[in-house]
């Protein structure tokens, strides 16, 4: 019964500079050090305390979004396990854990022109010295809010709330018209 319906997110085309990323399990974790410690054990990744940094282990990642806010990302197939394990680990600890798996859509902007493409909408300094690998933050892309995470020198994972995906991709594609075919 659980497999009766498939997840359908706003589509992301595959292009030399763009790749769709698979659906994921996502939790918004809010709380203090106790909550982070509880999650570290159950999730297998310690939520970073350094601002704007992501930590990963295997296919699981914890992203600092604010001093009391982290985003936990795991493969979709981990969903059922985490739905039990995380609340159990956090029982009795002040926190908020909210499933936001379907709230956002992930895709990757990559290749030698990744920085150049993103500079056409994101006001941050994306030079690798200023925005190193492992840095993640909410920011803006033209008029949309995005979550930007540099996963390699030439790779950025972007997550948008699902209804903004189209907008961000459309504008990136317009900019990409200038790229050599």
């Amino acid at each position: 019964m659980a497999d009766m319906l498939k997840r359908t997110s706003p589509p992301v085309a595959s292009r030399p500079w763009l790749a769709p990323l698979p659906a994921a399990t996502r939790y918004s974790l809010r709380g203090g050090a106790e909550a982070r410690a509880a999650v570290a054990a159950a999730f297998g990744v310690e939520p970073p305390t350094q601002a704007c940094r992501a930590a990963s282990r295997g296919a699981r990642s914890a992203l600092w979004l604010g001093p009391d806010e982290h985003l936990l990302i795991a493969p979709e197939s981990d969903g059922a396990t985490l739905a039990t394990a995380l609340p159990a680990a956090l029982a009795g600890v002040p926190h908020s854990l909210v499933d936001v798996s379907h709230r956002q859509v992930a895709f990757e902007v990559r290749g030698p022109h990744a920085e150049w493409l993103l500079a056409h909408g994101c006001p941050l300094d994306l030079d690798v010295a200023a925005f190193p690998v492992g840095m993640c933050t909410r920011t803006v892309f033209v008029k949309a809010e995005v979550l930007l995470w540099r996963t390699a020198d030439d790779r950025f994972r972007i997550e948008t709330w699902r209804s903004f995906t189209d907008y961000v991709i459309t504008l990136l594609a317009e900019t990409a018209l200038e790229l050599p075919a």
Partner: peptide, 12 residues
């Protein structure tokens, strides 16, 4: 207060 909020507008 021990309270946190999370937007779920687009989750549902």
């Amino acid at each position: 207060l021990s309270v946190w909020i999370t937007s779920t507008t687009e989750q549902w």
